[in-house]
């Protein structure tokens, strides 16, 4: 970026005066080719849909609490929230990194295809529901019904997991350090292999959390729901 000075590489949006639409239109249309590498969002005030649909490498810093769908559909960007977020943070993310310094409400990382979602605090119910390749690392606890029908990717939980963890799980793998209230249908605890320990170490390093891979257990699909079983008589 020759000829672009430090001030031009940084843009600030103050959402106490600017609209979320102004921010998102900048990120979608003006950012590519502008030389801007850093975007700061001030006074987010719990607004919905902050920094959604980015399709360009950029660092976005959100200085406060976000509302629903923050960094939804993210591609390539790195988004950090210095606060909490509402429902559906990084929903359907494709790539890049989203880090939440506080807690995340329900359905964090829902249907995510790729990238890394790091939640330093707790994540509420339905974390990683129908995830399709995203890696989600949660520093605290996760709520009930998390990783429901999770298809691919990893969910690593440093705290406890709620009820019905991994119900109707496909190929996604869950690692839990704390207590699991209950497993969902067709989810089972399995032996940790060397490959699992390496994956956990890599996820912890990505998030910057100082736990040991040996502290985690593995939950994956028993694959009994993969094929129709006429003898099951609708009982699973």
């Amino acid at each position: 970026m020759d000829g672009v000075n430090a001030t031009d590489r940084r843009r600030v949006f103050d959402l106490s005066t600017a609209r979320v639409r102004d921010l998102n239109q900048f990120l979608h249309h003006e950012l590519p080719g502008s030389g801007v590498e850093q975007v700061e969002v001030q006074h987010p005030g719990g607004r919905h849909a902050i920094a959604v649909g980015i399709n360009h490498p950029v660092n976005v810093e959100v200085k406060g609490h976000g509302g629903y769908y923050l960094a939804g559909m993210n591609k390539l960007a790195s988004v950090t929230v210095h606060g909490n977020v509402g429902w559906g943070v990084a929903e359907n993310m494709m790539s890049g990194t989203v880090r939440v310094k506080g807690f995340a409400s329900e359905s964090a990382g829902a249907t995510g295809h790729g990238g890394t979602l790091i939640i330093e605090g707790d994540a509420s119910l339905r974390c990683g529901i129908s995830m399709k390749g995203i890696d989600i690392v949660v520093g605290g606890d996760i709520g009930n019904y998390s990783a429901f029908m999770a298809q691919a990717g990893h969910l690593l939980v440093c705290g406890d997991a709620g009820h019905a963890l991994g119900d109707s799980l496909y190929e996604a793998v869950i690692y839990v350090r704390g207590r699991i209230k209950s497993l969902g249908a067709d989810a089972q605890e399995e032996e940790m292999t060397d490959a699992d320990r390496a994956k956990v170490a890599e996820l912890l390093a990505r998030a910057g959390f100082g736990y040991q891979p040996s502290e985690f257990k593995r939950v994956a699909s028993a694959k009994k729901l993969y094929h129709w079983n006429a003898d099951a008589n609708q009982e699973y």
Partner: peptide
């Protein structure tokens, strides 16, 4: 229902 409703309150930070 949502945080945005509380964002204006004094001391909410």
């Amino acid at each position: 229902s949502e945080f945005r409703s509380l964002a204006h309150l004094p001391g909410v930070d």
